[in-house]
Simulated assay, not measured.
Amino acid sequence: MTKADCDFAVLTVQDAELAAVLDLAQVIGEDRSFPETLYRVRLPDSGLAGVVMPVGGVGRVEGAIATSLLLSRVTPLRLYLVGIAGGFEARGVALGDLLVADYIWDYEMQRLSDIRNESRPRLFSTDHDLLSAASAAEKSDWQKGLPRVNGSRPNVHFGTVLSGDKVIASSTLVANFLRENERLIGVEMEGAGVAAALARYPIPVPFLMIRGVVDYANDDKREQSRVWLTDACAATAAFTFAAIEHAHDTNRARSEQ
């Protein structure tokens, strides 16, 4: 597959995330020559051709490896990392809402000493045009037909998302992070690795991360995730495909001017 016939690529992590994405796409082929299956898909409404691949593990390292593996097989016009995340209730995020990262904040880098520990976060930006397309998609009817636990509809939040290798289930730790950066809206585990791999790739590939909120990264994390996993994955997949189609339409309109 070449760049010309790969309009987009989607990376997922959990099985439920992959299933939700494939459920909305037309699978037209599978490549099992690598450890992770590469699914060739088309979007039913627009006919856009792309690929979907599971990351195969959790955390920044797995995200970076999966990105490098994906880019050794295809060169997509756009790359999306989609899945679930913890949302920060103090920032107005509700369970079932969506997070669109304009920046990804890798919090893992630190200097540890006997005197004090020093945080040295690394900040990655996502693609401006893909953010604009996601903003346009937010105003569309992408929510039509979505199931919801309590009958409500998800809101979309744009902001900075934490990324690291730790499963965060602590209100105290969340509060500490929020004091460091008022734009933080949630936390996940692979985005920084994907962004780091793309930063080293010789061909620029526009990147965006979209996450569905299944918990508040607190003590109730497991129970909240159990309730919201299916609906959050379905919403994330629907919104991602709407964002992909808006990005394609915008780019086509520009090329025709």
Rank of each mutant, 00 (worst) to 15 (best):
Y201D: 10
V227A: 05
G193Q: 12
L229G: 07
V187N: 09
G191I: 02
G193L: 13
E180S: 13
A196E: 03
F158L: 10
R183W: 09
N155C: 08
H248N: 10
D215E: 04
A175C: 02
S170Y: 12
M209C: 12
A192W: 05
T172D: 15
G193V: 08
N251T: 15
G193M: 13
T250A: 15
V167P: 07
S171H: 14
N176T: 12
N155G: 13
V205Y: 05
T250F: 03
L184T: 07
R252S: 13
G193D: 05
D249M: 03
T250P: 00
V187S: 11
N155K: 07
I185F: 00
V205Q: 01
L208Y: 13
S163F: 02
P202C: 08
R179H: 04
D165V: 06
E245T: 15
T236Y: 01
T230V: 07
A237D: 01
A247N: 03
G212M: 02
L208T: 12
A234S: 11
D165S: 09
Y216D: 07
P204I: 14
D220I: 02
H246L: 05
Y201S: 10
A235H: 12
H246C: 12
G191K: 01
R226N: 06
I244N: 05
L173M: 14
H248G: 04
A238D: 11
M209D: 10
